[in-house]
Design a protein around this nucleic acid. Structure first.
Lengths: 209, 209
DNA sequence: GTCTATAAATAGATAGAC
DNA sequence: GTCTATCTATTTATAGAC
């Protein structure tokens, strides 16, 4: 007997979720549309009904993820908090959004490795928003005499790279732990965020170099 | 007329080089053995003559890279330099080896995203060596009363993740630069290494948190 | 050691029924 | 909206000549 259709666009949502998991775990090329459909408890043809192609499906997922992070970061930069608090929030948001979307960190890592060759203009804009917002926060702190001018790319790298690394390696770290490495997974996202906040502010306030 | 064979194992070297470039740029699944052979100015069948399979070729490249970094790091940990200098050298070596092997950073990023599912036991051992050596250096510094006990994984993440990120994004950063982001690529590997050295030592010596 | 030719499997995409 | 069946292209891998 045929299953009854789910709520309108429910199948679309199911496909997006299954696809995000597949793309994150295997990467674009190794991802398999049949498997995506099966996980979503649907047929492969539904992917081509809701999306144009495997590539379009991928781009939509990536765009949504960058959009979510980008808009939250923009809001922080535009708020009237102090530069220090903005930096803390910036770090918090990257970590929270990254943890709330477990498929984002691996996909981000893969795109970096890819050299960004697969990101569309829209997605690139979101990514640049993040860097631009961080730059604006730093500028503001400099004008207020509280930050030293530091290359935003350097600051962003010190924040985002470790965060994505740690979020993407939750699984491996547990394996390393069991294999004998000491305490590889013995700290939480909050510990890491606090650490990065302290380091980043120390750098920006010139308490280090 | 048939080209004459190159020096013994010259074809093997050519295939390894071409394959590293292909795997780094496209990832394992999207890499194409035909293209690897063409770039090496050889025939696809030569890949199966020198290596068992595409997968074996991939693992050999990955293992060589981790081996090179692992053994240099082990040597640093075993030297009689001060803990501070060992930390500096550790960071230097990761950066230098990563820059000397431009295909390593992207492959590293992809493996992290993959959750390490493709690394063989040998390669995993090399990777654990790096973390183990860093842990030993930190322990030594602690016993000498110069470092605070900090989770090695936290320190390693703060060093390796930004380095791999920056080395892997040389190309994208130039594109972002032209697209309007300010000064994205306006610093060198030395600048970055110096920065990471300062930050890492500040953390280990308890001058931050 | 190196090549040609080909086998065999996989996987993206579409047509058309229900 | 959902599924079955199928077309087509790509691609790993091998057999065998030179």
């Amino acid at each position: 007997m045929p299953r009854r259709p789910r709520t309108p666009l429910g199948s679309r949502r199911a496909l997006l979720d299954a696809a995000a998991a597949e793309f994150a775990a295997r990467g674009y090329a190794a991802a398999n549309v049949d498997r995506i459909a099966r996980v979503a408890r649907l047929n492969k043809a539904m992917i081509y009904y809701h999306f144009r192609s495997k590539a379009a499906l991928y781009r939509e997922i990536l765009r949504d993820m960058f959009d979510a992070v980008g808009s939250r970061v923009r809001a922080i930069a535009a708020s009237d908090a102090s530069p220090e608090d903005k930096i803390r929030s910036f770090i918090d948001v990257i970590a929270i959004e990254g943890e709330a979307r477990p498929h984002f960190p691996p996909m981000w890592l893969r795109e970096i490795a890819e050299g960004g060759g697969r990101v569309d203009t829209q997605t690139l804009r979101y990514a640049m928003d993040v860097l631009g917002s961080l730059g604006a926060i730093i500028d503001e702190g400099c004008r207020a005499g509280r930050f030293r001018p530091v290359n935003p790319m350097l600051i962003q790298g010190g924040i985002v790279a470790p965060l994505m690394f740690f979020l993407a390696t939750a699984g491996v770290r547990r394996r390393l732990d069991r294999a004998g490495a000491h305490g590889a997974s013995k700290f939480s996202r909050e510990d890491l965020v606090t650490h990065i906040q302290h380091v980043t502010l120390a750098v920006l306030e010139g308490r280090i170099a």
